[in-house]
Design a protein around this nucleic acid. Structure first.
Lengths: 231, 231
DNA sequence: CGGTAGTGTATTAAATCTGTTATCTTTATG
DNA sequence: CATAAAGATAACAGATTTAATACACTACCG
């Protein structure tokens, strides 16, 4: 799992400011792409799918508000406005068109970074809900984020212990887990003696999840050792 | 009409500015509550559960950044900073502590409103990206933007707590929310013990929204864990 | 062949968790 | 300050989950 840098697109016609932003943001660990016109910026945004757009409102070709609207037609990417115009109506128009923040030139680079962090924070929060890594084998689906288990797209209700047991198996899918490990994780450290509870609940899980509980397809027994979830 | 106004808490020690904000925001359709100290503001926020907090950093009792952190310990409510201090470091500190925007006095009221709209937009977008801001299942419709709940196109009146409870479920539709999470979001951080309040209000919600409250179709119980709104 | 260790399944009582009603208190509002 | 709406609290009935017990089955080995 490699952590990739956040991607930022700078849409700005002034080469000096562009350069200032590029070098500054790069050293802060962002990957920066640039565009010097509104049209170009819209295209770049569509192609690169950045994490954030920094947009100068004073572009030569299109009005900045149109750029905002155009991006908002298909995306909720945070848009941060840079502008020399400090008139209130400009700010209101841009923000209502879908911009997330508005900075008036001249601005401090530290403040810009802080506001970028705010914007990325927002974006990540909404992303949290979407990206749910789901475990799938054959007809079984386990969604640990949403605490949801389904078989053939049909929701299966599990009791807390049954779920915890399945969850630890999913988290270690493919690996053999010893009775000890499972008991400690699911029931707590003081239950390590009662190994038969584990069999009871494993049986219940199989009844609910396996097509033929007597011939388990994924909830496998490793005799004398423990259990394993087949991938 | 079920529609209730968005609630804003103004934490500000200067009575003149407080009055200015109260009258201005009220005429714009917001319900405004006030606090003149940081401590009071934190308490009010916990009790009222507003949609947005407007916070003056120059409070007499506690440092504004501490107020931000205190609220952020339990809630993601948008916080908009008003401040006479225009120093960059102040802005960075506040934004990194968890504030969502920073306005320097003197500010235009129109810009304040626009930035409030941005903040509310963010809050409402937590799950549904740009698609319908309206949640629909079977005969139930929940419009978070307009705070409107209807069943078979018939408006249903919900009390504030009932609505917040439903709203948090809708925002996390499909996901299991623990009692703790719900209590924290709906009643505030100090109510995490009183899990039975949750049951009472869930019961009320079911009475109002489910066809057969004894056989819930979307307001599902996850015994021992929490509740979930079925998608 | 019998015994043993490891395993799977059914049953049930106890413990825990949940739903609902009723009542009292607080709050908003004219 | 009276009234209505909403919220807090207490009490109890009902449902679910868990723990505990019992018993059947298999494979392996002497």
């Amino acid at each position: 799992m490699t952590k990739t840098n956040p991607v930022i697109i700078v849409i700005e016609d002034d080469p000096a400011i562009r350069r200032f932003l590029r070098t500054g943001l790069s050293t802060q660990g962002f990957t920066v792409f640039e565009a010097d016109t509104g049209k170009q910026g819209i295209i770049e945004t569509g192609v690169r799918k950045p994490d954030l757009v920094i947009l100068d409102l004073g572009l030569p070709d299109i009005d900045g508000v149109e750029v905002i609207k155009s991006i908002r037609e298909w995306s909720a990417i945070p848009i941060l406005i840079l502008s020399a115009r400090s008139s209130e109506q400009h700010k209101i128009d841009a923000l209502d068109a879908g911009a997330d923040d508005y900075l008036t030139k001249p601005f401090g680079f530290g403040e810009l970074l802080a506001r970028i962090r705010v914007a990325l924070r927002h974006a990540n929060r909404s992303l949290d809900f979407m990206q749910s890594e789901v475990f799938i084998t054959a007809n079984l689906t386990v969604d640990l984020q949403n605490r949801r288990v389904s078989i053939d797209d049909q929701d299966i209700h599990l009791t807390p212990i049954q779920y915890r047991l399945l969850a630890i198996l999913v988290k270690n899918a493919g690996k053999v887990l010893t009775h000890q490990q499972i008991l400690k994780e699911v029931w707590g450290p003081s239950y390590q003696e009662n190994a038969h509870y584990l069999r009871i609940y494993m049986s219940q899980l199989r009844q609910k999840l396996e097509v033929d509980p007597t011939q388990p397809k994924f909830l496998l027994t490793e005799s004398g050792v423990g259990y394993r979830l087949k991938v």
